[in-house]
């Protein structure tokens, strides 16, 4: 794994201009994403909305991968429990309540994250990764076989809840409002995650990544920081799961399979770990590549083979990912 340089941690002077430029770029991209539903055809709009959701999942994993130096294969579980938590809430509330779905999805993902974190964070490197992978598979088997609750192989199907704030608004999601709703939550999550990575807490995570023993020696209870990092990461991954469930009106066991975690790591590496934006870019790049391949060669085409090859080429030639490359290119 390449070490992403500590994300702009240094200068206290001269930050203002840097920050201004950042927020200007942010505003432009947000504006483009807001008007996208008026411009894009139905298929591509849904595609874009989904990229935002995968981007959120990838960002959540970046908090561990890029900032704390932990490779998590548990993100399929957090995403999946977000999905199933939302599904459960939507099937059991009348009328189906969106906020309850988010709450239950976050509770499910957060609970799973706490459980996984408790056992895995005392381990390091590959042992951490393997432990999270084992937990991912345990959760997968439970969800796959507990048919009476989870619907087993078939998953759960439900209809989309209304967007309702009592006494204020109450409307059915259409593709415009669905996109905006997802955009608002993903953008909000990004701003929050960015704050977290730039906070004192975020610095401790980066310090753990750089030198775990030294971080402990200057007084930090490293295991507790890792548990909180996994919890936070799991909550954002769970939110992504909720959004995916609400958008697609189902929860399916396939998403709990560890392949989802693998994809998440690929998004990160393609886009550039330790950058938050990179993983979103990586998710978009990956999905576009897959779509392109299936359009060119048909649905049955084993897209993972060429995607894998592109991935390897990128690791060799763009070890910092697309964002790292873009940053260097901009600096020149």
């Amino acid at each position: 794994m390449t070490l992403a340089s500590l994300d702009r941690i240094s200068p206290r002077k001269g930050r203002l201009s840097h920050t201004t430029v950042f927020w200007m770029v942010f505003a432009v991209i947000m504006a483009l994403l807001v008007i996208a539903p008026f411009v894009l055809p139905v298929f591509w709009l849904k595609f874009l909305t989904e990229i935002l959701i995968w981007g959120l999942l990838a960002m959540s994993s970046d908090l561990l991968l890029g900032y704390t130096g932990l490779i998590s294969f548990g993100h399929s579980v957090f995403f999946g429990l977000g999905m199933y938590g939302a599904a459960g809430a939507l099937l059991h509330s009348h009328p189906a309540n969106l906020w309850l779905a988010i709450l239950c999805g976050l509770a499910g993902a957060g609970g799973a994250a706490l459980f996984v974190a408790y056992f895995s964070t005392r381990l390091r490197d590959v042992y951490f990764a393997i432990t999270t992978l084992i937990f991912a598979q345990i959760f997968y088997v439970i969800i796959f076989t507990w048919t009476s609750v989870t619907g087993g192989e078939n998953g759960l199907i439900f209809s989309r809840p209304h967007f309702a704030i009592p006494f204020l608004v109450d409307f059915k999601f259409d593709r415009y409002t669905m996109h905006w709703f997802v955009l608002a939550l993903v953008a909000g999550s990004y701003v929050l995650l960015r704050r977290i990575t730039r906070s004192p807490f975020g610095m401790v995570l980066q310090s753990i990544r750089e030198n775990e023993a030294r971080t402990r020696a200057i007084g930090y209870p490293v295991d507790r920081y890792k548990i909180v990092a996994v919890m936070l990461s799991g909550l954002f991954a769970g939110l992504a799961g909720v959004l995916y469930a609400v958008q697609n009106e189902f929860a399916a066991p396939d998403f709990v399979f560890f392949i989802t975690s693998g994809d998440t790591i690929i998004f990160n590496v393609m886009g550039g770990i330790g950058t938050l934006v990179g993983p979103i870019v990586g998710a978009g790049f990956f999905q576009l590549l897959r779509e392109l391949l299936s359009r060119l060669f048909g649905d049955q085409f084993p897209y993972l083979i060429p995607v894998g090859m592109v991935f390897i080429v990128m690791i060799i030639f763009l070890p910092q990912g697309l964002m790292g490359w873009a940053r260097r290119w901009l600096n020149q």
Binding site: I9, S10, R195, P200, F201, G202, I218
Partner: peptide, 25 residues
């Protein structure tokens, strides 16, 4: 890979604001 300043600040920070998450360090 951190600046000299950050090396020292993260040490100082272990005594105060260690868990602060939402403010720029």
């Amino acid at each position: 890979n951190a600046t000299v300043f950050e090396n020292v600040r993260v040490a100082a920070q272990s005594r105060r604001h260690a868990w602060s998450m939402l403010r720029d360090r």
